[in-house]
Design a binder for these strands. Structure first.
Lengths: 232, 232
DNA sequence: ATTATTTTTCACCAGTTGATGAATTGGCGC
DNA sequence: GCGCCAATTCATCAACTGGTGAAAAATAAT
């Protein structure tokens, strides 16, 4: 019935175990698709390219995931849940540790730093994934619903926390400043290499510690400036 | 010889003037292509869709522009020169008016505001164009060379001016903060509609004055915070 | 009117696309 | 060993892709 759900995908006893000795083929396909989608976008990648990269037959992709768009969604969702969980945990920990006194920089760090940490230590796929999300984030009307469903809750939490840290800021201020923040963050995380060329090699896109050393302070100061400007 | 250069594209006397009464068909094609590329990306658009949108035959696109990629480049370049000119003029005017005393917010405003003004008053195509540039900006290894060639000079000028306004900032600080700035700016200009959903309609992507009222101060405060943080 | 030139259309190609159904393979319980 | 069923391959499809060359239409100079 559901093409994305093979007749019995559960490891129910019957069925042939993957010849790749435990390395699930489904994950391999997702990895390849992720990498390619991140580089060339949804329409810039063919199912055949994904299959070739993963070393499987084209038909197998449809067998596991159904239509191409469903494959893309599977790629997007696979890490979205993990990401979200990590982020919520970070915000929880910060708010608990801070007691009642939230600082804008603290809140922002709790919101962004999980992504930097994952990008550093989470494995190679995550860099592709962030590039993918950045692309979706900057494309009007694409995956907006999914972004909304998965990421907006934690964003609302960020906005609420920042509202407590910056009581002078209006809700509109907070939403707009979040828009600025997410633009900076996603561009930085997608490691486009643009800054390498611009700075003649002085800065490297892959230097996440350089980002960490600046982005939190940069965004926090921005929020604060907007908060005081609009309410005296 | 060059497919993008019809045998005699110059209005040399001979030849048939456009039946569209002065509204050059070439521009119509560029408009349609711009709109579609902005929405769906290079690979997400077929030459046939462009032709249909423009109301012309597919072959005419190749007659005027050659290969699909050349069409895309033509779309990109058409406004890039205008944009660049406008921006340089704005920076010139600011630096002249400011005399020797540059403020970070003044420099940033001179850098960004031309884009906001063009988006407001420059005609409907510009919004698509900004969405297009935002997409290119966030896609690793796409049009990077073109971006580099056209936009980096004025960016370097921004960095130099900010270096004078913020003598405590290192070059690396300035490049990184520019990366943050451009991420915010491009996302805001591409009007993805994300903020509308996130804020439940409180903020609208199309509200450029709301952006103007916050983005300059936001970025300027960010630059200043990073500058003082890293050098005491 | 004739002609030269440019613009536009038409018909078409070779290659690719996403997708499918039939066939094959291989492990597992019996 | 046998049959069952999931996993995988193969061959193939109709639709569509970017692109082209020849013909037609439109224009303006002569």
């Amino acid at each position: 019935m559901n093409a994305a759900t093979p007749k019995k995908p559960r490891a129910s006893g019957r069925g042939r175990p993957s010849k790749h000795a435990g390395l699930d083929l489904k994950e391999t396909i997702l990895d390849s698709a992720e990498q390619l989608f991140a580089r060339h976008g949804f329409y810039g990648v063919t199912t055949r390219q994904v299959a070739a990269e993963a070393g499987v037959d084209t038909a197998l992709i449809h067998y596991y995931f159904g239509a191409k768009r469903e494959l893309f969604d599977a790629v997007f969702l696979r890490r979205a849940e993990i990401l979200n969980r990590e982020r919520v945990a970070s915000m929880d920990a910060y708010e608990k540790a801070a007691g009642g006194v939230l600082t804008s920089e603290g809140v922002i760090e709790a919101f962004i730093d999980p992504l930097l940490r994952i990008s550093e230590n989470g494995g190679p796929g995550w860099k592709s994934y962030f590039a993918l999300v950045a692309q979706v984030n900057n494309t009007p009307g694409w995956g907006g619903d999914t972004m909304h469903r998965f990421f907006d809750p934690v964003v609302r939490r960020l906005v609420d926390a920042l509202g407590r840290a910056l009581p002078k800021a209006s809700r509109a201020d907070l939403f707009w400043c979040y828009e600025f923040l997410t633009g900076s963050m996603m561009l930085a995380l997608s490691e486009t290499g643009r800054i390498d060329a611009l700075s003649d090699g002085l800065c490297r896109s892959s230097d996440l510690s350089a980002i960490r050393a600046r982005l939190f302070a940069y965004c926090a100061a921005g929020f604060e400036a907007v908060a005081v400007r609009n309410k005296g």
